Amino acid sequence: NRTSFTQEQIEALEKEFERTHYPDVFARERLAAKIDLPEARIQVWFSNRRAKWRR
């Protein structure tokens, strides 16, 4: 089942994506704690966001 992201979560994710397309585990963990999502969801979001960026 899909995770629905809040506007705040999307903004935080997009901001980090501007900084780096490949956040390391520490950056992902920090973001996970900040926006209250599992680190695995963040990893998947970045993977999908990079795919979207390449299109």
Results as ranks from 00 to 15, higher is better:
39 E>C: 05
27 A>T: 13
9 Q>T: 03
49 R>K: 12
18 E>N: 10
46 F>K: 00
15 K>P: 01
10 I>L: 13
49 R>E: 10
42 I>K: 00
28 R>T: 11
39 E>D: 07
27 A>Y: 05
22 Y>N: 08
51 A>C: 07
22 Y>R: 05
40 A>W: 10
29 E>C: 13
13 L>F: 03
33 A>E: 10
23 P>F: 03
1 N>G: 07
27 A>E: 12
53 W>I: 12
37 L>G: 01
50 R>N: 06
2 R>P: 09
37 L>F: 05
9 Q>G: 02
5 F>M: 14
42 I>P: 00
7 Q>S: 13
5 F>E: 08
38 P>H: 13
8 E>M: 04
12 A>G: 06
54 R>Q: 15
45 W>I: 00
52 K>P: 02
35 I>Q: 05
30 R>M: 08
31 L>W: 02
26 F>G: 15
3 T>P: 10
4 S>D: 15
12 A>R: 04
19 R>K: 15
19 R>H: 07
41 R>H: 08
18 E>Y: 03
32 A>N: 02
45 W>D: 01
51 A>V: 07
5 F>R: 04
33 A>C: 07
52 K>M: 13
54 R>K: 11
40 A>E: 13
44 V>C: 09
29 E>M: 13
47 S>D: 11
25 V>M: 15
3 T>V: 09
45 W>R: 01
3 T>S: 15
12 A>I: 04
48 N>Q: 13
19 R>G: 05
9 Q>Y: 02
52 K>S: 13
11 E>W: 05
16 E>K: 01
52 K>L: 12
24 D>Q: 01
43 Q>L: 10
9 Q>P: 00
39 E>H: 08
15 K>S: 12
5 F>H: 07
12 A>K: 11
31 L>Y: 02
13 L>C: 03
13 L>W: 00
2 R>G: 08
29 E>P: 01
6 T>I: 02
35 I>H: 11
37 L>W: 04
17 F>Y: 04
46 F>C: 02
35 I>G: 02
44 V>Q: 05
41 R>P: 05
28 R>Q: 06
26 F>E: 15
6 T>E: 04
27 A>L: 07
1 N>Q: 04
18 E>I: 06
39 E>P: 13
45 W>H: 01
15 K>V: 08
19 R>F: 07
52 K>C: 13
34 K>C: 08
20 T>S: 12
23 P>N: 01
42 I>C: 04
55 R>L: 07
52 K>H: 08
34 K>L: 08
15 K>A: 14
31 L>P: 01
26 F>P: 12
48 N>Y: 04
30 R>F: 05
32 A>P: 02
32 A>S: 08
31 L>K: 00
50 R>F: 04
20 T>I: 06
24 D>A: 03
52 K>I: 09
23 P>G: 01
31 L>V: 03
19 R>L: 12
4 S>C: 09
53 W>T: 07
25 V>A: 15
36 D>F: 03
4 S>Q: 12
24 D>N: 06
41 R>E: 15
37 L>C: 10
2 R>I: 15
8 E>R: 10
27 A>K: 04
38 P>Q: 06
6 T>H: 05
46 F>I: 02
5 F>P: 05
21 H>L: 05
41 R>I: 15
54 R>T: 08
42 I>A: 01
13 L>E: 01
41 R>C: 13
13 L>A: 01
41 R>S: 10
31 L>C: 02
47 S>F: 04
45 W>V: 01
33 A>G: 11
17 F>Q: 00
55 R>Y: 03
15 K>R: 13
41 R>T: 12
54 R>I: 07
27 A>W: 03
37 L>R: 03
38 P>I: 04
37 L>Y: 04
23 P>K: 00
38 P>N: 14
44 V>W: 11
17 F>I: 01
51 A>S: 13
38 P>A: 11
45 W>P: 00
43 Q>K: 11
52 K>W: 09
11 E>K: 10
23 P>E: 01
22 Y>W: 07
55 R>V: 06
13 L>V: 01
12 A>M: 08
18 E>P: 00
44 V>H: 08
14 E>V: 02
13 L>Q: 00
20 T>E: 12
19 R>D: 13
8 E>P: 10
8 E>Y: 03
32 A>Q: 07
31 L>A: 01
26 F>A: 15
29 E>N: 08
30 R>G: 06
48 N>G: 05
20 T>C: 13
26 F>V: 15
50 R>G: 01
36 D>M: 12
6 T>G: 06
39 E>G: 10
42 I>S: 00
44 V>R: 08
18 E>D: 09
52 K>A: 13
10 I>Y: 15
30 R>N: 09
8 E>S: 14
13 L>M: 14
11 E>V: 12
47 S>C: 13
19 R>Y: 06
42 I>Q: 01
17 F>G: 01
18 E>G: 09
23 P>A: 02
42 I>M: 05
20 T>K: 03
43 Q>P: 02
21 H>K: 09
32 A>I: 04
18 E>K: 05
18 E>T: 09
41 R>F: 12
28 R>W: 04
10 I>P: 03
41 R>Q: 08
35 I>E: 03
13 L>S: 00
23 P>D: 00
45 W>K: 01
21 H>F: 07
42 I>F: 02
44 V>D: 14
39 E>Y: 05
51 A>I: 06
19 R>S: 08
42 I>R: 00
52 K>G: 09
25 V>T: 13
22 Y>C: 09
45 W>F: 01
30 R>S: 15
30 R>L: 09
44 V>N: 12
34 K>D: 11
48 N>T: 14
3 T>E: 14
43 Q>M: 12
41 R>W: 11
53 W>F: 09
13 L>H: 01
16 E>H: 03
27 A>C: 15
51 A>N: 08
29 E>V: 09
5 F>G: 03
7 Q>P: 12
41 R>V: 14
34 K>G: 07
2 R>T: 11
15 K>T: 14
51 A>F: 05
54 R>V: 13
16 E>F: 09
20 T>Q: 08
27 A>V: 10
38 P>E: 13
19 R>Q: 14
37 L>Q: 12
24 D>E: 04
55 R>P: 12
40 A>T: 12
21 H>P: 14
50 R>Q: 04
16 E>R: 01
51 A>G: 07
43 Q>G: 09
34 K>F: 11
21 H>Q: 13
32 A>H: 03
38 P>T: 14
38 P>S: 12
28 R>G: 03
18 E>V: 08
17 F>E: 01
33 A>M: 09
25 V>D: 09
39 E>L: 12
6 T>M: 04
54 R>L: 12
28 R>A: 07
28 R>I: 14
2 R>Y: 14
47 S>N: 06
7 Q>I: 09
34 K>T: 14
8 E>C: 09
38 P>L: 06
31 L>I: 07
17 F>V: 01
3 T>A: 10
10 I>H: 06
3 T>D: 14
32 A>E: 04
52 K>V: 13
32 A>F: 00
12 A>H: 14
4 S>T: 14
20 T>A: 05
44 V>G: 09
46 F>E: 00
7 Q>L: 09
50 R>W: 01
3 T>F: 05
31 L>M: 07
37 L>I: 14
41 R>G: 08
37 L>P: 03
5 F>Y: 10
19 R>M: 08
6 T>Q: 03
49 R>P: 01
8 E>V: 08
12 A>P: 03
1 N>K: 15
26 F>K: 15
10 I>C: 09
47 S>I: 06
43 Q>V: 09
3 T>Y: 06
28 R>H: 03
54 R>S: 12
21 H>R: 08
15 K>E: 14
30 R>Y: 15
22 Y>P: 00
24 D>W: 01
44 V>L: 12
29 E>R: 15
46 F>T: 00
6 T>W: 01
36 D>Q: 09
29 E>H: 07
29 E>T: 13
50 R>T: 03
10 I>Q: 11
53 W>S: 14
49 R>C: 04
